[in-house]
Design a protein around this nucleic acid. Structure first.
Lengths: 194, 194
DNA sequence: TGCGACCGAATGAACGTTCAATTAAACAAT
DNA sequence: ATTGTTTAATTGAACGTTCATTCGGTCGCA
């Protein structure tokens, strides 16, 4: 067991998690480095041992969070199921990830609509790009979906799921499998080949 | 003709427009008051003649922009048309507003995902609430749509249109009536009663 | 003894906001 | 019309605060 690596990871992870929580709560400019340090129980200077600047901290947090999202979406992937079933599984996984990780969802939405996304378009999760986007591309190629550009499809799906998750969270509603399926049905009905 | 009123409006409007452009370009914290003042050709102090603080400037800009969006959506409203036709008109109007006002679209998206929206939920466009949300509510009550909570319906529709507008803008594609209708069809197919 | 992890006070730049001074406009009296 | 008076609009340098970042030093392990 490499203790040094553990320490490395634990402080680094604490900083990332604190950034996620504080950015969600107060926005990018409302989450100063001093507060992030305090929340993560490290000194302000320690952050700069792991990250070059606040900017790179945010960008690396984005990639890590999107990686986590991709992993959550891909969980229980079963090649033997029908495309529609796999699509529903993807959507429900994504929805559940948002419900269970509100800070992650809010952060991702903030990031996408911030100048960061425009300034570092190449900084993104490789896992998400290959597996998730790839799956949607297969749906278009396989004639399950309308002939939509996949770059349009992704944000469309995300928009609906985020809207639904935001709504459920704001209403403090209790988790219900039917609710989720209803929302996914909206997405599916919209984009499937009629 | 009231010259005083003209001057009042012109400086105030210049400040609002500059804020819109700079926030779109650099984000909330990347658009300092000094830069907004310079861009609007006024002194820094002048901003505080019209707005109490940067916070209220942003909130008032949000309300004004959403009012403009509502007006654009309602343009050419024809009660004699079918609900579906009116819905398509609404959607196409909204889409066109986004395409023609990219800074407004980006600003609205940033605002919705910022702490402002959570801190001042009551600060919003009355016109939008009454006319646009009201129209969607009528669609649910009149059994044109699935039985969806209207608070879920709004963001769902917005998410798709914004995704589409963002995509068209990023690709610098030429305006095409068919493209728009295709996107609106996705929304309609998703939420209409099957 | 050396080295990387870590600390936190210090730094200087940038920011939102203020305010005393200036100019322009509106109004009143003549 | 002219002048004097009041009010509003505008300015930009100055202020105090906050912020991201730095750096000299401490600690603990190899």
């Amino acid at each position: 067991m490499n203790v040094q690596l553990n320490n490395f990871n634990s402080k680094r992870e604490a900083i990332l998690n604190s950034t996620l929580v504080l950015v969600k709560e107060y926005g990018f400019h409302g989450a100063p480095m001093s507060q992030i340090a305090k929340h993560a129980n490290v000194a302000a200077g320690t952050i700069y041992h792991y990250f070059d600047s606040k900017e790179t901290l945010i960008v690396e947090l984005y990639i890590r969070t999107k990686d986590q999202l991709a992993e959550a979406i891909l969980e229980g992937y079963d090649e033997s199921k029908s495309y529609k079933d796999r699509f529903f599984k993807f959507m429900i996984n994504q929805y559940n990830f948002y419900i269970q990780n509100e800070p992650a969802m809010v952060f991702l939405e903030q990031y996408i609509n911030s100048p960061f996304a425009k300034n570092f378009p190449e900084k993104d999760s490789i896992l998400f790009k290959e597996k998730v986007i790839g799956f949607f591309q297969a749906g278009i190629d396989g004639d399950y979906f309308k002939k939509i550009d996949p770059r349009l499809l992704g944000p469309t799906i995300r928009g609906t799921l985020v809207a639904a998750a935001n709504f459920r969270l704001s209403e403090h509603m209790i988790y219900s499998e039917e609710d989720i399926t209803e929302v996914v049905q909206i997405v599916w009905d919209g984009i499937k080949r009629q």
